[in-house]
């Protein structure tokens, strides 16, 4: 009792500003490097700001321009396609891989490492290697032609849709290991006794996967879905490197981030329009996140 009284009086000895002082460095960092740039982006979206000069208020002109921007339409189509393909593939395939490598069998460490290696490699380096493989005279076309599957090389790096799906394949391949690791930790929380009980009741591996494993990692699955959705909308490296930074013929293989980069670069960068695009991307990433969070709450 005496100890408790002493403790609380010691706590009361702190000045009123002590907690503020403790969080001050982090708050300052957040304000200078997150909050201020974010608010500044909102402000610039309504101006014709350039790196040197400009900055006059132009109302909704930057947003009106978006309606008349073909490239933005291509970029949004690409992002939605990216999301539609990546979300199911990267939600299910890593889970299957995690289930496969979860078992304690000799030699499985090799596969765990092998599946995780692409995650460690730089996205730019990996994309360059894929470029060499998918090139007109690269390994993939050489194999396809040797096997007589195709007569002429397939235009993986020049045709709009092939380029887009090549980039999606790269994202999926590179993401498998990362999400597999997340699933592996989640699988550790799924009770082994549930599997054993289900097995005793005659449930096969497929039934156990759908009825025990999937519900057991549902929360993780939702988190992964959100992560993939956001990263699909914000895709940059794969498309940038695989199109040589050009966005493909007609800029039809661009992403929104590539457009932001294009408009904000250089002495004459159009920071107003780039800021408006950033705001659009922010809203776009927010919508699926809110929807998924609501879905989770309802199911919960």
């Amino acid at each position: 009792m005496t100890d408790t009284v002493k403790m609380s009086s010691r706590v009361r000895e702190h000045k009123w500003f002590t907690p503020w002082l403790l969080v001050a460095p982090a708050t300052l960092w957040l304000c200078v490097f997150n909050l201020y740039p974010a608010l500044n982006t909102v402000y610039m979206a309504f101006t014709n700001k350039k790196p040197l000069g400009g900055g006059e208020f132009v109302g909704l002109a930057n947003f009106a321009r978006m309606l008349d921007d073909d490239q933005l339409l291509y970029a949004l189509t690409n992002s939605v396609l990216y999301m539609l393909v990546c979300v199911p593939l990267l939600t299910m395939l890593p889970l299957l891989l995690a289930v496969l490598v979860e078992k304690k069998l000799p030699g499985l460490t090799f596969f765990r490492v092998a599946f995780y290696t692409p995650v460690v490699a730089s996205a730019v380096v990996v994309a360059l290697i894929w470029n060499w493989m998918l090139d007109d005279r690269g390994a993939i076309n050489a194999i396809l032609q040797a096997l007589k599957v195709v007569q002429e090389p397939l235009p993986f790096l020049t045709d709009r849709w092939l380029l887009l799906f090549s980039a999606i394949s790269l994202t999926v391949w590179k993401g498998l290991g990362y999400y597999m690791i997340i699933y592996l930790s989640a699988l550790g929380n799924v009770g082994r006794e549930l599997h054993e009980a289900a097995a005793v009741d005659g449930a096969g591996p497929v039934r156990r996967f759908w009825s025990i494993t999937v519900p057991g990692v549902r929360g993780t699955m939702l988190l992964i879905t959100i992560l993939i959705t956001v990263s699909s909308l914000r895709v940059f490296s794969e498309l940038y490197v695989m199109t040589g930074g050009t966005g493909g013929p007609g800029g039809r293989v661009s992403s929104v981030v590539m457009l932001i980069q294009m408009y904000s670069t250089g002495f004459t960068g159009h920071l107003g329009y780039a800021s408006a695009l950033s705001l659009l991307l922010f809203v776009l990433t927010l919508v699926p996140m809110v929807l998924l969070a609501r879905l989770n709450r309802k199911d919960g």
Binding site: T246, G248, G251, M262, Y263, T265, G266, T268, G269, H270
Partner: peptide, 13 residues
């Protein structure tokens, strides 16, 4: 500007 160069390059391609 760099943005113009990119657009011209894309359209010629």
């Amino acid at each position: 500007s760099p943005a113009m160069s990119t657009i011209i390059d894309q359209q010629i391609a």
